[in-house]
């Protein structure tokens, strides 16, 4: 999960969940928004990692 809090170099947009199956590769897209009045140079983002729940077979695939 991408953090949107202060302390980041710009904040990630509202698309904050990185799917554990689809997030695999060298081309993972990040959408970074600068809400401030000054430019951001070479932004950095932060993520927190959560355990995925057990799949009980009742879940469907969400759109991306």
């Amino acid at each position: 999960m991408l953090n949107q809090g202060k302390g980041n170099f710009g904040i990630h947009t509202g698309a904050v969940l990185l799917d554990p199956v689809k997030t695999f590769g060298t081309n993972i897209m990040l959408e970074i928004y600068n809400p401030g009045d000054q430019p951001v140079v070479n932004p950095m983002v932060s993520v927190e990692v959560f355990r995925a729940p057990e799949n009980d077979g009742s879940r469907t695939i969400a759109l991306t």
């Binding site: 710009g10 947009t13 990185l18 799917d19 554990p20 199956v21 997030t23 695999f24 590769g25 060298t26 081309n27 993972i28 897209m29 990040l30 959408e31 970074i32 928004y33 600068n34 809400p35 401030g36 009045d37 000054q38 430019p39 951001v40 140079v41 070479n42 932004p43 983002v45």
Partner: peptide, 30 residues
């Protein structure tokens, strides 16, 4: 989307006030 995006080198990568950028990273969560 992967087919209709154009990649631009950006060194440094800058973001003007009240705007956003689409960029990328490498990550393997599987």
């Amino acid at each position: 989307l992967d087919k209709v995006q154009i990649r631009h080198a950006a060194t440094p990568l800058t973001i003007d006030p009240h705007t956003g950028v689409l960029t990328s990273c490498s990550m393997y969560l599987k």
